[in-house]
């Protein structure tokens, strides 16, 4: 019975926009915030997982993000998009986390150059000859080796399917900078994937 009530309560919120839910939360219905969590937790988790590469870290970031958002909810500007705000909080948490474990930037390119490997393999051949699971492993390694500012742009574009202007909004940078970072990031990914495949 109570579940049915909860369900109907939840259903009444489904049609509400993010901003309306925030308004309700601030006006004395803190449980309404759960709906915002449900709506955005998967995207935030995916973003954090791909930024940090570890499931438990992603989970922590996810909690930290929503905790921060909840605590600073009154600071949220109604004219902005909640998605941009929550992504920005999540990315800030990720960067803080990355700074705390400094030295984990792999700089694979340099390492494999030092070892004498040649990126003779093209990315096209990786997709053709390797199994999906193997490619996923290579991609994860290559992505983790990218500088965070390129990694986040690639993640938002490739996995979160965000438009350039949305990414620029989240990061607070010009659209042209987003495109340049993406271009450089993709180039680096191409090279890293080639090196990693050659090193197998």
């Amino acid at each position: 019975m109570s579940e049915a009530i909860l369900q109907s309560w939840s259903d009444s919120f489904v049609e509400l926009s993010d901003n309306e839910i925030i308004e309700r939360t601030l006006n004395g219905e803190p449980e309404a915030f759960n709906l915002l969590i449900r709506r955005w937790e998967r995207q935030i988790y995916n973003l954090a997982f791909r930024m940090l590469g570890k499931e438990e870290d992603a989970h922590d970031i996810c909690q930290e993000t929503f905790f921060s958002a909840y605590r600073h909810l009154s600071k949220f500007r109604g004219d902005a998009k909640f998605s941009s705000w929550i992504y920005r909080i999540a990315l800030n948490c990720c960067h803080t986390h990355l700074r705390s474990r400094s030295g984990t930037n792999l700089s694979l390119e340099q390492q494999y150059e030092d070892l004498g490997y040649e990126p003779t393999t093209t990315v096209e051949s990786i997709n053709e000859t390797m199994q999906r699971g193997q490619v996923a492993g290579l991609v994860k390694k290559a992505l983790m080796g990218l500088p965070p500012d390129m990694r986040e742009v690639i993640i938002m574009k490739e996995y979160q399917d965000m438009k350039f202007h949305e990414i620029a909004d989240v990061l607070g940078i010009p659209i042209s900078t987003v495109k340049t970072r993406l271009y450089t990031g993709l180039n680096q990914m191409k090279q890293r994937l080639g090196y990693l495949k050659a090193a197998l």
């Binding site: 499931e55 909690q63 929503f66 990315v123 991609v139 993709l186």
Partner: peptide, 20 residues
């Protein structure tokens, strides 16, 4: 395009199931 195809190979499963 090939890099993009490779990137799509990495799937993230699971959900954090965070609650207030």
């Amino acid at each position: 395009r090939a890099v993009s195809t490779s990137l799509k190979a990495w799937h993230v499963e699971g959900s954090p199931n965070v609650s207030l």
